[in-house]
């Protein structure tokens, strides 16, 4: 995977000084408090694990939106894009590597959510199926990074799409069932949500941390999550290839 490692390493260094990093992270403990307070107040403590998992998924998607929005534009403005395109590596893999590094933010956000629920409400999440949790987390993070790769290409092909970048948060939280499982939605809506990778990832992560929770076919969930992530990455590669072709034809790699 030429380019992936370079992108991953670059982004880890770059993220330290970026406001987007802290913006993506800071809301996690607050979301945990909001969701936990709902569960405790309504007496649905059986759903506490949902309240701890959801902020991590929200952080992943927030980071995907925040970082994908300007990734290619910044390379252009800083004069890096031509060198990166000329380098013997896949530009799409470089972007994917950078966005995978952004997904590392899921770990501190999960820790903050876990600690907020434990220290304020005395609820300490248990890992019923640690292997399933780890594999679901890695696959969900990779699918998010793949989707963000596609988005970053869309944002640079159609600058107008940037204006709706901030509006993609709650629609995806809702359709991805980050807190309430989509199986509890009306039938027609559940069908729609199943094309959103998060709906599979969220179900898996909840099943791995909720005592007594079992998914009918765990492998099917993992495969669907992987397939949707791979599809998003394929689309991302296609969009990036089209953008590069157009930019080369117009001599506009450095600017619009």
């Amino acid at each position: 995977m030429p380019g992936f490692g370079a992108g991953f390493e670059f982004q880890i260094v770059a993220m330290r000084g970026q406001a987007d990093t802290y913006f993506s992270l800071i809301t996690a403990p607050f979301f945990a408090l909001v969701f936990m307070s709902i569960m405790e107040y309504s007496g649905r403590t059986d759903l506490n694990s949902h309240a701890v998992i959801a902020p991590m998924l929200i952080t992943m998607w927030t980071a995907a939106l925040s970082f994908s929005g300007e990734m290619i534009s910044e390379d252009r403005e800083n004069g890096r894009l031509e060198s990166l395109i000329a380098a013997p590596m896949s530009f799409a893999m470089l972007l994917f590597g950078r966005l995978c590094a952004c997904m590392l933010l899921a770990l501190p956000s999960f820790l903050m959510s876990y600690l907020a629920a434990g220290s304020v409400f005395g609820y300490w999440l248990s890992f019923e199926q640690p292997l399933l949790f780890a594999s679901a987390l890695v696959l969900t993070a990779a699918a998010t990074a793949a989707t963000a790769t596609a988005l970053s290409a869309v944002f640079v092909i159609a600058p107008g799409a940037r204006s709706v970048q901030n509006t993609l948060s709650f629609p995806v939280y809702l359709l991805g069932g980050v807190l309430v499982p989509v199986s509890q939605y009306p039938g027609w809506l559940e069908g729609l949500t199943r094309i959103v990778y998060l709906s599979w990832g969220a179900d898996l992560l909840r099943a791995a941390t909720t005592p007594g929770a079992e998914l009918e076919n765990t492998i099917c969930y993992l495969v669907m999550l992987g397939l949707l992530g791979a599809t998003a990455f394929a689309l991302g590669r296609l969009f990036i290839s089209r953008f590069l072709q157009r930019a080369r034809a117009l001599g506009a790699l450095a600017k619009e």
Binding site: F35, I38, M39, S42, R44, L47, G160, S163, V164, N166, T167, L168, S169, F170, P171, Y173, L174, L179, V180, Q184, Y185
Partner: peptide
């Protein structure tokens, strides 16, 4: 973009919390 983007986002935000309310309360 206000109607098709922002307003849709806003309605989804309210729906998101409302569905939680329906689920638990």
């Amino acid at each position: 973009t206000w109607l098709g983007g922002w307003l849709v986002r806003v309605l989804c935000q309210v729906a998101f919390y409302s569905i939680i309310g329906v689920t638990v309360g």
